[in-house]
């Protein structure tokens, strides 16, 4: 696995908020103000990087029978630490995030990365993946938060729950549109793919 692919996947190609659509509950609920979005984005990034790193670190010590309990244990412990730290450093933020801070533990993005990558990649690779995916999530959350806070002074709908869905839908559409534009150009990649398809008919592996 290439390092540049990991970065590109997290930030754009397979962005958790725009393509994988993981962790939508906090994404939609906490994006009403920029401050909340930054707070929850950073807390999620913190948990994701550390959970990816520690799960990768212990990957040879756990077999399939205890894999899930151990992963959940690691994520829950890290989330509790994140909650304590936010409470200690910014009590007001802690109060306005409320239940969504402890709910990071159920963010499927985190268990998803542990299962998809951290359980078999090196600690370095997993940490980079956590950073890339976490930053991708953070950027979408912050964009949504900034957009909704800015819009809400003129359009009250932006501050309400339906506004979150509509704004995220627009962001996803924008992402798809840019992707479409990028793909229209004949790139080396697409030539590569047609070639390979012809070659692999005889040899499936």
């Amino acid at each position: 696995m290439k390092l540049s692919t990991v970065w590109l996947d997290g930030l754009w190609d397979r962005n958790p908020g725009l393509i994988q659509l993981l962790g939508l509950c906090p994404l939609l609920a906490v994006s009403n103000t920029l401050e909340n979005a930054i707070g929850l984005g950073l807390a999620t990034l913190f948990v994701l990087v550390l959970s990816n790193a520690s799960i990768s670190l212990i990957r040879t010590l756990v077999d399939d029978s205890i894999r899930l309990p151990v992963f959940v244990l690691v994520i829950a412990a890290l989330t509790t630490c994140a909650e304590l730290l936010v409470q200690a450093l910014d009590y007001q933020l802690y109060q306005s995030l409320g239940i969504f801070l402890p709910l990071i533990v159920t963010n499927c993005l985190i268990l998803g990365r542990a299962e998809a990558l951290a359980k078999r990649e090196t600690v370095f690779m997993s940490t980079i993946d956590g950073l890339a995916q976490g930053l991708g999530f953070f950027l979408v959350l912050v964009t949504l938060g900034a957009l909704r806070e800015w819009m809400s002074s003129t359009l009250i709908l932006a501050a309400l729950p339906p506004g979150a869905f509509i704004a995220l839908g627009l962001l996803v559409a924008l992402h798809q549109w840019i992707q479409g534009k990028l793909k229209q150009k004949p790139t080396e990649r697409s030539v590569d793919q047609t070639n390979r398809r012809v070659r692999t008919t005889g040899d499936i592996s």
Binding site: I58, V62, I66, P69, V70, L73
Partner: peptide, 10 residues
């Protein structure tokens, strides 16, 4: 493995 799970818990 139960022992390991307990250890991780601790």
């Amino acid at each position: 493995m139960t022992v390991r799970l307990t250890l991780f818990g601790l």
